[in-house]
Design a protein around this nucleic acid. Structure first.
Lengths: 339, 339
DNA sequence: CTGAAAGCGCTAACAT
DNA sequence: ATGTTAGCGCTTTCAG
């Protein structure tokens, strides 16, 4: 496990010159550089990031805090982050944050603060003022994905508008009895995504003068089995069945579709279902969805983090970054046979 | 950003004593320890892992190398790893390894060697002899999940036996025309999982004296859309349609089921499908599967890594770890109406 | 039980 | 353009 001093000795230069030659900081003659580089190569030398970080203060490592790994949206975001980070020469240290308050404190106060990371990307997690203060006091950039938080730059779609958009789509097809099956409103971790989508649905329904009371809303676990269970429960009775459903997420929507098909309900002839996300399984299930690109969100978050790292290592006023991708309804839903 | 010296000053002890009090190494009187600990608490002191690692050589960080993040199996394994690692007080640095050789080299030789990690867990990736030699020469434990590799401890199911088991299950139900839809055999990253499962299928078919030629095998992308596309292509023509399918993975199996249902094929009356994995969506799609528990595999890999870290920091002969969980067929498939 | 001192491997002034 | 020097923040002998 050779050290810089070994390389320097072999190349017959000082440690300082070897360091400059390898890192590219400072003047080194072409010839010495070559000598050092090839010396390093023959010895299989790689810098100790610990030693380097200790003196420079930069770790070339970014912490990603995320509530789930194996849910489609989060997996996509994570992949996007990973790809962009590697391309920038950064490592990614992963912290899955559960809803458990104790564990959360531990991650925030202990793991993230150990000088391990240069910046933090929080996905789908509404950081507390205390957590943000902590990171801010360490002059560590924080980027949020999936919602808005005071004091930090965040990247998100407008969930209210998105839900309103898909609801409008169903209304324009002539549906009148439209249900919303969304996520549990008390899910404490996220950026109120579920309640905002519910609000968007209700906003569109109210504007159209259509009913959207509690009997037309149901909470489900944000997953295919969650949507499936809700679908079975709701669609079994033909008399109370809605003609269309706005699902809180594509995973829920797909679960509903599977349940509907199992009950012998024709889609879209007897039931229209729309979701939000742009899940790659949407075409396979004939799902109409409002497409966003979570992988791209991950990439953008990395870019944002890089900007903050480079341009404002000192704290300056935070910016709100609206998610600039265009959202468009993908897939089509024919008009209902019975309104 | 207080340092140990600040804590020491506040507690009116030396840096050495403060270090001992906080880390628990060495003798410190109860009273001094309390003084130091409370001083640290009031200052919000957290050790610099860089400085600490630099002198101890241990990073309390484990590198996880994985080919995909957003595929069910890999996501589950990753979650298991993450949970267990956090519980052990370790961080997890994530490296997604693509099939691209250049990128792979870079990750292996650069990222993993920078003294950032104490050990490596490779999931679904067949490390090359060179890569293993590299890690070995650094005395870094490596654990593999999902296959076997000479020279390192690995955790895996017996893919041949698993595929034979589900195939036998179909044979015992009276099926004679059984197809296998598996992954691309040339997928260079993995531990030959696909070819081993194909071998297991053929072994069982041969033993039963049933045909299993090339016309009964088809490669598909290991995903739901991959299985869906293969299913549509294969099941469209009733004359060539098999009565049962052994899918290479549950995701493929679910894709096939969705395709079959879309084609109006009754499952299991007209077609039986079995998979391997124990996907949590299996019940929802009425899929019979051979259950393993990838999340548990992740946990076990962490335990294994911990053992190696603690018990043999020096290199000693590697062990093969067969995956000890019992595999059982879950779900049921009724007998075929037409053999 | 506690303190002084050395040094992990590197980078960044400061000299030359 | 290169070398010398002084730490980065911590752990760990070695004394006491």
């Amino acid at each position: 496990m050779s050290a810089l001093s070994d390389v320097a000795r072999l190349a017959e230069v000082s440690k300082a010159t070897a360091s400059r030659a390898l890192s590219g900081n400072g003047y080194v003659s072409e010839e010495t550089r070559n000598r050092v580089v090839s010396a390093a190569a023959t010895m299989g030398y790689v810098v100790s990031s610990n030693a380097s970080s200790l003196v420079t203060g930069s770790t070339k490592n970014i912490g990603v805090v995320i509530p789930h790994i194996n849910r489609w949206y989060f997996g996509e975001v994570l992949e996007g982050i990973e790809t962009s980070l590697i391309a920038e020469g950064y490592d990614l240290t992963l912290y899955r944050l559960s809803a458990d308050a104790t564990e959360r404190r531990r991650v925030a106060e202990y793991f993230l603060v150990r000088k391990r990371v240069d910046a933090v990307i929080a996905v789908g997690i509404e950081l507390t003022a205390h957590e943000i203060g902590l990171l801010h006091s360490l002059a560590k950039p924080i980027i949020g994905i999936g919602g808005q938080v005071d004091g930090i730059a965040t990247l998100s779609i407008d969930d209210v508008a998105a839900a309103a958009l898909v609801t409008d789509h169903l209304i324009s097809l002539g549906h009148a009895r439209i249900m919303h099956i969304g996520g549990f409103l008390e899910d404490e971790m996220d950026f109120r995504v579920h309640s905002q989508r519910l609000a968007g649905y209700r906003q569109a329904m109210n504007l159209a003068g259509l009913p959207c009371g509690d009997e037309l809303f149901r909470e489900a676990e944000v997953s295919m089995p969650g949507g499936y269970a809700a679908g079975l429960a709701i669609l079994a009775d033909p008399r109370t069945r809605p003609s269309a459903i706005v699902a809180g997420s594509d995973e829920v929507a797909i679960g509903i579709i599977v349940a509907a098909r199992q009950l012998g309900i024709q889609i879209p002839a007897q039931l229209s279902v729309v979701g939000i996300d742009g899940h790659d399984l949407a075409p396979m299930f004939g799902l109409t969805t409002l497409a966003q690109n979570p992988k791209m969100q991950g990439t953008m978050a990395v870019n944002l983090a890089m900007d903050e790292l480079v341009e404002r290592p000192d704290r300056s006023p935070p910016t709100w970054h609206a998610y600039p991708m265009s959202l468009e309804v993908r897939g089509s839903t024919t008009a209902p046979s019975a309104g």
